[in-house]
Write a protein that binds this DNA or RNA. Sequence first.
DNA 1: GAAAGTAAACCGTCCAAATAGTATAGTATT
DNA 2: AATACTATACTATTTGGACGGTTTACTTTC
Lengths: 187, 187
Amino acid sequence: MGKNSRKIDILNAASRIVEDKGIFNLTLESVAKEAGISKGGLLYHFPTKEALVQGMVDHLAHNYRTKIAQNVEEDPLDKGKWTRAFLNVTFNQGYPNKEMHSGLLAAKAVKPELLEPLHKAYEEWQTNIENDGLDPIDATIIRLATDGIWLSELFETYQIEPDQKKEVYKRLHKWIQDMYISTEHNP
Amino acid sequence: MGKNSRKIDILNAASRIVEDKGIFNLTLESVAKEAGISKGGLLYHFPTKEALVQGMVDHLAHNYRTKIAQNVEEDPLDKGKWTRAFLNVTFNQGYPNKEMHSGLLAAKAVKPELLEPLHKAYEEWQTNIENDGLDPIDATIIRLATDGIWLSELFETYQIEPDQKKEVYKRLHKWIQDMYISTEHNP
DNA sequence: GAAAGTAAACCGTCCAAATAGTATAGTATT
DNA sequence: AATACTATACTATTTGGACGGTTTACTTTC
């Protein structure tokens, strides 16, 4: 296993706690216990609670980035690949997942500045989506809609039916396809 | 003026604290101070911290509901009025606002079950939007996109340019209009 | 209309429990 | 010898909330 698999164990434990018991139960002791480690051991890896939360954010931003990048790379088509990546990741690959939810909430609670790694990722993505070979406004709308799915899962504002979610996905996907066709004659 | 204007003062104070200093600084003392009241006085109105947060959620859910309902009522057209209400409220009336952000985050931190009033509102709205006289999937996509705007403002994932935001609004609005035209011949 | 009564609104202190972080001495692995 | 821990004790501080008392706003009674 990697050198820092222990660190990742700890981060996962922290995520689980935030997810199951809320941020107020994210204490050094509870994280240590959940990770099967002593408090001293936890503090060895993350010297402060803030460092722990920063670790959570860095980790989730890295994972999210990797996931999106993978989808972009594996896409055979160039036009719309970024927009499609977000669609796929959100609708078919369960991202952003609960780990991300906890990380976001923890950071927002402890110190919003910790979210910067994620902000940077989002800025880049927005640029890529606007230069995805599609109409930038339409592409942005598609991205916003996927973020809407995320929001609804994060706060459980409403449970979209799986069938309906699939329909939404198909329609958005088709939308990208139609844009592609309508612009390929105007290079 | 109203009997419980004091309660609302307190709720506003609590929102301000969450917004400016984060959830961990939402203590009984800090809320009391911000509201210009004593700790005892605060506890008179909200006997526990949980009750305070519940108060925040109830208040924001009520305000949001009212705002949406107003827009629906004032809409001269029937078809698409619910979908348009969300568009207008989100893009032109600054809702969900910071007060809502704080309430949501506080509830999620203290006890997610407290969000139920909001969940109920969302369920109803989803039903209304699906029966808005528009294509239900398209209407849902528009709603998801507005939620996406909300998410980005809540976590500041990326700052959408005001011009671009306006463009997005115009396109979504036009989309509703086009749907209206294409379906009005098939009653 | 003064006095008495009453309930809601509010103050300020006290306390037990919890917590972040420090410190330290020792152990296992590499 | 260095790294990665365990285990435990301790400090300093914060916090929810209980509690007993006080003021204000209104009524009622005499």
